[in-house]
Design a binder for these strands. Structure first.
Length: 211
DNA sequence: GCCAACGTTGGC
DNA sequence: GCCAACGTTGGC
């Protein structure tokens, strides 16, 4: 999964979500912002190295987001129902880790924040797009995206290998990362973190926490 | 580039 | 609605 460089799409109507495909419930009431059991921290995967899909380079690393006008871009190209549903749960101000996937050194590169809530991902209708979906019709769009803004690069890159060590350790002896989605639902490109998980990962930035 | 894990599709 | 075949993700 890799969003493309695009600073802002033409504003589309935000869809009332209907189908859920086994994920969590989609929202209906934009007025009720604070649903209790919903997440407010996320991890979003993108590929920082060039790879051609449908004739298009899907490269989009944190530096690419940082380079966009206003350091803001739309997170398009998500084509998995669970990941989409998580994006629909996102609210303005939520923080997410920017994760580099499918690359030489996978891991957490930085922090981003949600600046626009879910709306129609126009790239699903674009034959020239890497993530064109011929099965989706404009009258009933399948896929959504959010806008995110670069917040900062991590004080140091947090490699997947390090996160995995903690995960395994926590699984054996208990700890915040014992059930973290990055390993228990490895293929999800947009995933939630509990506050505890999020805080623990943040604490890894400090050198004395290194393994 | 290999391939395990897992999500999706479609025949029945 | 089962499930085999197929396609994709993403670490290694």
């Amino acid at each position: 999964m890799a969003p493309k460089k695009r600073s802002r799409a033409a504003p589309s109507h935000s869809e009332a979500s209907t189908e859920t495909a086994g994920g969590r419930k989609a929202r209906k009431e934009p007025a009720e912002e604070q649903q209790k059991d919903s997440y407010s921290h996320w991890l979003m995967k993108s590929e920082p190295e060039s790879r051609i899909e449908n004739g298009v380079d899907v490269k989009f690393g944190i530096e690419d987001l940082k380079a966009l006008p206003n350091q803001t871009g739309c997170w398009d190209g998500v084509r998995n129902y669970q990941a989409r549903n998580f994006m629909r749960d996102m609210r303005v101000g939520h923080q997410a880790f920017f994760y580099h996937s499918n690359c030489k050194e996978p891991g957490i590169a930085g922090l981003i924040k949600v600046v626009k809530e879910a709306y129609v991902d126009h790239t699903q209708f674009d034959k020239k797009d890497a993530h064109y979906d011929p099965s989706s019709k404009p009258e009933n769009p399948k896929w959504s995206m959010v806008d995110v803004q670069y917040e900062r690069t991590m004080k140091r890159f947090i490699p997947l290998s390090e996160l995995k060590k903690h995960h395994l350790q926590h699984k054996a002896k208990g700890g915040p990362l014992k059930g973290v989605a990055l390993f228990t639902r490895a293929r999800l490109s947009v995933q939630p973190l509990s506050e505890e998980e999020f805080d623990f990962v943040l604490s890894l930035e400090d050198a004395d926490n290194q393994i």
